[in-house]
Design a protein around this nucleic acid. Structure first.
Length: 851
DNA sequence: ATCTGTGGCCACCAGC
DNA sequence: GCTGGTGGCCAC
């Protein structure tokens, strides 16, 4: 028999059939010479390993500089070769005839370990074409991670899901307007993304280890210290803490609820075995920093204690910790992904720590310890550890498990195993997505040096040090404007890439006759003969989101599950689409092509400029605009209709009415405004008062004023608002001067983007504060963490919050900061800060109006 | 080892 | 005191 199916626990169970399951990943077992595919079966909620020694074919490595195009075409046509990859770089190692070849390939199901392990191989080179002894799984089947398959009579069969009737209807309407290639691509996406998102059975864990000394973390490499506690929280209701009983430690008081099961162990080895048994029960294991700490520590500790390797379910890689049979998701790596941070989680968190993320997304925090962790009584340790596992689990559970679902959708779109997708950035998602289609159409993936031949930038950036010119920002008309309609282009850049056929092989293409198809404002031209591959892929994804997923998510007669699915897919597509333009201009992206990014932005500027001109013709006043949006002053329904129809007809891009503000207040600054919606809800953009580093005290004052302004309905109301604002600011200014404001409310909170030592050149205030904290308290603020500090008189001008005293607060500085924060706001309304207080000097602000 | 882009505002640093 | 540069945070 060619294939056997291995169940998660019973290692040698041979099964020939497997009901609908999600493909997780595929690897190659070099010893057995077999492909191993990992599946998740959602009914039994188990992982199955499918071993297969069929359906894999050799790689073909070529030296592209030595191989002719004809030979390449022949190679592509051969059925006994799974993939053609070419050598990026060859290094001769010594006088042995061994070359180290850097290979370009990113097939997620490439046998040998996925994305990165194939990139560098050692081989002896005998000819310009070499069949590599390792194998690729039969990618021509188009196996997609995250998608459903079943196994019937030892064969892998894709599960066909019907496109729901309402999507089918929407598709029909839209598809009549696109070409055949796009239409089939869109249907393909719709079928893949319409597949259900099953429940994922999972357990979150967190471990505690005796630290070598206070404020120092145990080293997971050496794993010298005892594991003293571990907590599990799972999707099927498991809540437990495993504790190592230590003679020199008190029990303390149990504050955990009765639902939390506490298990005691006298022997650390038994504890570890119990931990591994639990891990084996779950197909998915969730940690926060498990790659670098928890799982790494457990694995190395087990080795140290002499536990047999086969009994340890963890496999350590260079910078990740995997599970032999399950899937490990390290949320630290997921939350550090900027794309997800901004587009999936609305930029709600900034600090990349468990506490920072959990506080922002869940409103839950870690338990603060006042004692050295090694001295904590057993039950207090249990409570602390349990809380961490609970928060970690909750991060995968909030908002209908949005995180797990979005990762699954991204795995499907990116054609990347879910655990890989959760660990890497957008450039790798998009690389994987594009590579998949290159292979399917038998196209060779271009090398960096080949792409470089397309050329450099054609425009000059406004900001020094940038590579090309970006979006256009319209000078705002300062003052208050009532009934402002905000229109924006739906997915502007992806739309431009679609409409204008932008791709690395179409911009500045080789055909003489295309050279007249110029992009205005640049020296570029675009191919008129062939459809560009990135244009097709990004364009079809865009169409799917804009024409189907966005409207369908809003439609009323949907089940809750359908609605959830549409929302999640729509979100995931937004993340991918938003990044698809950016990566084209990023050197690290393997398909980096500056002219594509440059041309996209140029066409964006042309689009918005043309629309502004059209508004002028229609007698509509444009008060502001930024990149893909226009703010129109009190347009009529007809005018809006006129302009949106025009955009759709003439530009081929949907211009949507996003919202109408009751009023908008612009200062003279770009990217700085305040808008009030009809229901009184306030949009604040870019104003200092909303920025995360601003002290609580200033934020509160700012938001109180905003609150007052939100009640304003008409021009006359502003008079009353002015009075209320004046009273409030005076009250707060007096409290500041009288040093009645608690210190923590005066703390600036700024992220350390680098380690302290890495700040060369200038030394900003927050870094100086971090230095003081390190010297005086031995507490180190690491990169990615936030430091709180107070602006003080003398001594460097700053003091970390922990060391500051009320008397040394630089009141004048804070007053100045308060004033500049309010200036942005009040400028727009035609007041000024001191005038509104009825005072001419700062001193009068403090004491004026007081009798 | 990891990394999507440019435009804009602000406070502060450091050199003159 | 002026000024260019840096760092942080934000808009899109």
């Amino acid at each position: 028999m060619s294939s056997i199916l291995v169940e998660q626990k019973a290692q040698s169970d041979s099964v020939e059939n497997l009901s609908d399951s999600i493909l997780i990943s595929a690897t190659y077992d070099g010893d057995k010479k077999k492909a191993v595919l990992k599946f998740y079966e959602p009914k039994e909620k188990k992982i199955y390993l499918w071993e297969d020694n069929t359906n894999h074919r050799p790689y073909c490595l070529i030296r592209r500089d030595k191989v002719s195009l004809e030979t390449l075409r022949e190679l592509r046509a051969r059925k006994d070769v799974a993939d053609i990859v070419d050598i990026e770089k060859l290094d001769l190692r010594g006088d042995r005839k061994i070359m180290v070849a850097k290979v370009i390939t990113t097939n997620p199901l490439a046998i040998g370990g996925g994305v990165d392990s194939i990139r560098s191989i050692t081989t002896t080179w005998e000819s310009d074409i070499k069949y590599y002894e390792n194998f690729l799984y039969d990618y021509e089947k188009g196996l997609i991670p995250g998608a459903f398959y079943r196994i019937q009579n030892s064969k892998i069969v894709p599960v066909e899901y019907d496109i729901p009737a309402n999507v089918r209807e929407a598709l029909k309407k839209g598809l009549s307007r696109v070409d055949g290639d796009s239409a089939s691509k869109i249907i393909e996406w719709a079928q893949l993304l319409g597949q259900p998102l099953p429940d994922i059975k999972r357990v979150a864990l967190d471990i505690e280890v005796v630290p070598p000394e206070e404020n120092r973390l145990p080293d997971p490499e050496t794993a010298d210290h005892r594991v003293i506690a571990i907590s599990f929280v799972s999707s099927d209701g498991l809540k437990e803490v495993l504790l190592l009983r230590r003679k020199d430690i008190k029990d303390g008081q149990n504050v955990l609820g009765p639902e939390v099961n506490i298990r005691w162990f006298d022997d650390e080895q038994e504890l570890l075995n119990a931990i591994f048994a639990r891990i084996n029960e779950y197909p998915f294991v969730i940690t926060f920093n498990g790659d670098e700490f928890d799982l790494k520590y457990l694995c190395n500790r087990a080795k140290k204690l002499g536990i047999y390797e086969e009994q340890v379910p963890i496999q350590l890689g260079r910078d990740w910790a995997g599970l032999r049979r399950g899937v490990h998701i390290d949320l630290y790596k997921t939350f550090i992904n900027r794309s997800l941070q901004i587009y999936a989680f609305g930029n709600k968190y900034s600090e990349h720590t468990l506490n920072g993320v959990a506080e922002a997304l869940l409103g839950k925090t870690k338990i603060e310890l006042d004692d050295f962790i090694g001295n904590l009584p057993h039950y207090e340790l249990a409570n602390y550890c349990y809380n961490d596992a609970q928060i970690t689990f909750d991060l995968t559970n909030f908002s209908q498990e949005i995180l797990m679902k979005i990762l699954l959708v991204i795995a499907r779109v990116a054609k990347m195993p879910l655990d890989d997708a959760s660990r890497v950035g957008v450039s790798n998602w998009i690389r994987s997505m594009l590579s998949f289609d290159h292979r399917r159409m038998n196209a060779l993936i271009p090398r960096k040096d080949e792409l470089q031949e397309v050329g450099g930038a054609s425009t000059e950036a406004i900001i020094k040090g940038k590579k090309y010119k970006g979006g256009m920002v319209v000078e705002p008309k300062s003052g208050v404007h009532f009934n402002v309609a905000v229109l924006d282009f739906a997915s502007l850049y992806p739309s431009i890439i679609k409409v204008n056929n932008l791709s690395y092989e179409t911009v500045r293409c080789v055909h003489e006759e295309c050279k007249s198809n110029k992009i205005e404002g640049t020296e570029y031209w675009v191919c008129t003969k062939r459809r560009g591959i990135t244009s097709l892929l990004i364009g079809s994804l865009r169409d799917l989101r804009v024409n189907y997923y966005k409207p369908i998510a809003k439609s009323p007669n949907l089940t809750k599950e359908q609605k959830d699915l549409y929302n999640v897919v729509s979100q995931a597509l937004k993340v991918i689409l938003n990044a698809s333009y950016g990566v084209m201009g990023a050197e690290i992206f393997p398909l980096y092509c500056l002219p594509v990014a440059d041309a996209t932005a140029a066409l964006g500027r042309n689009t918005i400029t043309a629309t502004i001109n059209r508004c002028k013709e229609l007698d509509i006043e444009v008060v502001y605009g930024d990149t893909d949006s226009l703010f129109l002053k009190a347009p009529s329904q007809e005018q809006i209709k006129e302009i949106t129809n025009w955009a759709s007809d003439k530009l081929g891009i949907e211009l949507d009415l996003d919202k109408v503000y009751r009023y908008v207040a612009f200062s003279s600054r770009k990217k700085n405004y305040l808008g009030v919606m009809p229901d009184g809800i306030i949009d604040i953009k870019g104003l200092t008062g909303k920025k995360s580093h601003v002290p609580r005290f200033i934020k509160d004052a700012f938001y109180e004023t905003v609150e007052i302004l939100s009640k304003v309905q008409s021009t006359e109301d502003f008079e009353k608002a002015r009075e209320d604002i004046r009273n409030d600011i005076r009250k707060r200014a007096r409290a500041l001067k009288a040093k009645e404001v608690p210190l923590d409310q005066l703390a600036f909170t700024i992220m350390m983007s680098k380690e302290i030592e890495d700040y060369k050149g200038t030394k900003p205030q927050h870094v100086r504060a971090a230095e003081q904290l390190k010297i005086k308290k031995g507490k180190e603020v690491k990169a990615g963490e936030v430091i709180s500090f107070i602006k003080t008189l003398g001594s460097n001008g700053v003091r970390p919050l922990e060391l500051a005293k009320k008397e040394e607060v630089d009141t004048e500085k804070y007053m100045e900061y308060l004033r500049s924060t309010f200036d942005q706001l009040l400028d727009a309304l035609g007041y000024d800060f001191e005038e509104i207080l009825g005072a001419r000097t700062l001193d009068e602000i403090f004491w004026g109006g007081q009798s």
